[in-house]
């Protein structure tokens, strides 16, 4: 039973991160390889807001999340906007460079030591017994948050006008512009939402298990989850996360703990060989001559 709970928590983590990859990819076909770093940045921002609003942990969290959203929008406006119209690969490499920059900045500002935001907020991470296993409070919060985020995103993309426009812009940017949709606004919105969900993930993970630069690796491991499910499908991201999390937890349990960092990538390669566009993704068009 404990195994199932571990899988569920890990899957929730991966899913919460993966939807950030999916949002940006779906709208602008850019793979944001700085997602892990942005997520880590949000967790560090929480550290700062926690010291600012030490009386009021919830306000601290809300402030950190809001700041992260701003960071995402600013990243688009000042950096990625310049890369629209360039080759996709150049844009992806720009995100890689951004990631490297953020990694450096985080250490410069907050030092490389392991931090504990939960302590800064004065919270204790209780462990709750459920169904014959135990789950940490932050872990439970992760599962609930992921469920809420996915439900929210689903409703947003399905029924709200901006969500529909986001899907439209992702499908045919030219036509979207002809229909009066401002692509820059839509892309900025996508970046904002993506860093927002990333911030939720980063903050909850750091509340659960502390904070240092290894968080980047978690972000990177969530990427296979997004790709296995199909880079442009939210449902896919959810299922991909479950698959990756299950594979990882089971491998650690039955085979070797050292494998934990490779399993997602092994699954990724398997998927790329069999079905590169993922379980639920749309197949990329063949190029015309």
């Amino acid at each position: 039973m404990q195994l199932a709970i571990n899988i569920a928590v890990l899957a929730a983590i991966y899913a919460l991160i993966a939807c950030g990859y999916v949002l940006i990819y779906r709208v602008s076909r850019v793979l944001n390889l700085a997602h892990g770093e942005l997520m880590m940045l949000s967790a560090y921002l929480l550290l700062t807001t926690a010291s600012l609003f030490s009386k009021n942990p919830l306000i601290a969290i809300a402030a950190a999340i809001f700041l992260s959203l701003c960071v995402g929008v600013l990243v688009y406006l000042f950096l990625m906007r310049r890369m629209t119209g360039e080759m996709v690969l150049a844009a992806v490499l720009t995100t890689v460079a951004l990631g490297v920059l953020l990694r450096g900045l985080v250490v410069l500002v907050w030092s490389a030591q392991q931090q504990n935001p939960a302590q800064a907020l004065g919270w204790v991470n209780y462990s709750i017994p459920v169904f014959g296993g135990r789950i940490s409070a932050a872990g439970a919060a992760l599962i609930i948050t992921t469920a809420l985020v996915y439900a929210g995103l689903f409703l947003f993309l399905r029924f709200s006008r901006y969500g529909i426009r986001m899907r439209a812009a992702g499908q045919n940017p030219l036509l979207a512009a002809q229909r009066g949709i401002s692509l820059h606004a839509i892309y900025a919105l996508a970046w904002g939402l993506s860093t927002l969900t990333g911030a939720l993930a980063g903050i909850l993970i750091s509340l659960d298990s502390g904070l240092d630069s290894t968080m980047v690796l978690i972000g990177l491991k969530a990427f296979p989850a997004a790709l296995v499910g199909g880079l442009d499908s939210l449902v896919g991201a959810l299922i991909g996360s479950l698959i990756i999390a299950a594979a990882e937890v089971l491998m650690i349990y039955y085979v070797d703990a050292l494998l934990s960092d490779v399993v997602p990538f092994l699954v990724l390669i398997l998927m790329l060989v069999v079905r590169p566009w993922g379980l639920f993704g749309t197949r990329e068009e063949l190029d015309r001559v």
């Binding site: 720009t94 460079a97 490297v100 920059l101």
Partner: peptide, 23 residues
Amino acid sequence: GMLAAFNYAAFGIVMILFLVFEP
């Protein structure tokens, strides 16, 4: 003690500058 961090940051900035301004 933070040289590595400076390295990362500067490296990221240089890479971005080249990608954006001097492809």
